[in-house]
Design a binder for these strands. Sequence first.
DNA 1: TCGATTTGGTTGACGTGTAAACTATATTCG
DNA 2: CGAATATAGTTTACACGTCAACCAAATCGA
Lengths: 164, 164
Amino acid sequence: MEDGANRRMSGKLQSELKKRMPFETPEQEALLNLVRTSDRIQFRFARLFREYGLTPSQYNVLRILRGEGSPLPCLEIADRMIAAVPGITGLIDRLEAMELVTRDRSTEDRRVVNVAITAKALELLGKLDGPVGDLHATLVGHLTHAELRELSRLLEKARKSLPE
Amino acid sequence: MEDGANRRMSGKLQSELKKRMPFETPEQEALLNLVRTSDRIQFRFARLFREYGLTPSQYNVLRILRGEGSPLPCLEIADRMIAAVPGITGLIDRLEAMELVTRDRSTEDRRVVNVAITAKALELLGKLDGPVGDLHATLVGHLTHAELRELSRLLEKARKSLPE
DNA sequence: TCGATTTGGTTGACGTGTAAACTATATTCG
DNA sequence: CGAATATAGTTTACACGTCAACCAAATCGA
């Protein structure tokens, strides 16, 4: 608690300094930069997907299914997304209603529900591949490959502090 | 469209390569790294805030109000968060119900609603300052200051491609 | 001055993320 | 075998975030 108290400034001093000292530490600045940049990027992708009637989560599910090439159980999908389990149910519900996936209860283990991608969804993803690649290029195409590698290295190093 | 078509691989080839080629391009790898790292970090902060009964958005609103030092109109708060306008109403509603902010309609312009932080909220933020600083250190403390500066530089350069 | 436009804010509908509790099927072990 | 436990998935409740539509106060302009 000593530690925490020392890091605090008095309210008055703090508000005086707020304008001329936007970041207290390089750690804070880097974290804020990271989160803000990620949010902006995700917003751009969300906008693109929406033009095709998809949300980012829905697109992710379809990408996972296409990448796998065969049906997957719900929990396997949940694992590959970072998302928590319960959200998957509704997500699959809506994809099923749009006829982009089908649900089939496994015969060998009647607890598992296998989710398969439909031809309609594959066609939709096909239409998205070009624009998605273009957006990648737009967003970070102005960084050199060396910079991109360095960025990935730093991000991976940052993630080292996170369990799992 | 030529461009997009060329970037696409046949389904068969693609599924064969999927396992041994997790990223098609350095651009994709960097973007995925960025989003994943940000998500993990935000999850950690969310967990911390939850221990104190706050969501990340609620904490952000309170931080903005404390930083400003005086009441702010709703739209000003919405501006400083990246969030869209309509979500602010409910956010303020809940903070008001928790007695962490007060709402007052301005007398000079009767359209604007000024939101003020309460003493109770200032006390709560005070208790969070230490742990929040500690978490910053935990998450990126193992990067050198040079690395943090380089990370911030690359992220800012990446954001250059984003309008605004 | 009065009608049109702008601006601050709210409401409603929908999709998502999270935690907690619950159902149903499998599995394990005494 | 049969009870305890684990696993796959769903439901419920709540907090967002987004869009579209809306209301009311303020401002602009002929």
